[in-house]
Nucleic acid binder design. Sequence first.
DNA 1: CCTGTACTCAACCATTTGGTTGAACATCAA
DNA 2: TTGATGTTCAACCAAATGGTTGAGTACAGG
Lengths: 110, 110
Amino acid sequence: MQEATELAITFAALGDPVRRAIVDRLAAGDATVSELAAPFPISLQAVSKHIKVLEAAGIVSRRREGQTRPVRLEPELLDRTAAWLHEHARRLEARYARLDAVLDDMKENR
Amino acid sequence: MQEATELAITFAALGDPVRRAIVDRLAAGDATVSELAAPFPISLQAVSKHIKVLEAAGIVSRRREGQTRPVRLEPELLDRTAAWLHEHARRLEARYARLDAVLDDMKENR
DNA sequence: CCTGTACTCAACCATTTGGTTGAACATCAA
DNA sequence: TTGATGTTCAACCAAATGGTTGAGTACAGG
């Protein structure tokens, strides 16, 4: 990473396998930092850093709850990112369909 | 990056602003390496490397056409990635909706 | 108040990444 | 064939990333 567009940050955040796994886990429900860290062979601090990256990207939010810091996945950004991807895919498919039509036409009238 | 799941690779590939811009450009139609490199202040070789990353991720494909190597955006992977994101967002929204319903219920019956 | 628990912050290190330049390869055009 | 054009390959470098450990902060419970 190095720049600042929202989508670039989102993708960069999801580009790390540990962070992707964290997001997967959070899709099932909120979790504390220790809970999120448990499955990984890395230190709690490292996981804490990953969560910070996800939070900076707007993918998760944290709140304080006693001495624990539950993390919640925020759907909104994921939705917008999905929309971006979907729009690209849609446009491409339409374009390729038109191309195929032209080619078929050429074949028929040959 | 460091691992191998398809999605992690896809996201990592799209996480770089230059590569995201390349994908944006390709959504409008195929382009050669030089054409893709033109808007950027970096060397042609650097752009060539970026395209290699996108190709390895399965986001684009290259063919030879004379001395030129046109790059094409492949919709399929983008679609699958969008589906992943959308599914997460959908599940979350459903979960939060249920939560809200429960909270409303508690409020009514207080 | 003191101790343990749950984190975060800071300094540091190794590896990866994104860039560079220079040389090589493939194709077209003369 | 020779030279120009388009692109890739290789070696190299600086900066960013992901990890570590050690110290600090915030709250809960005895």
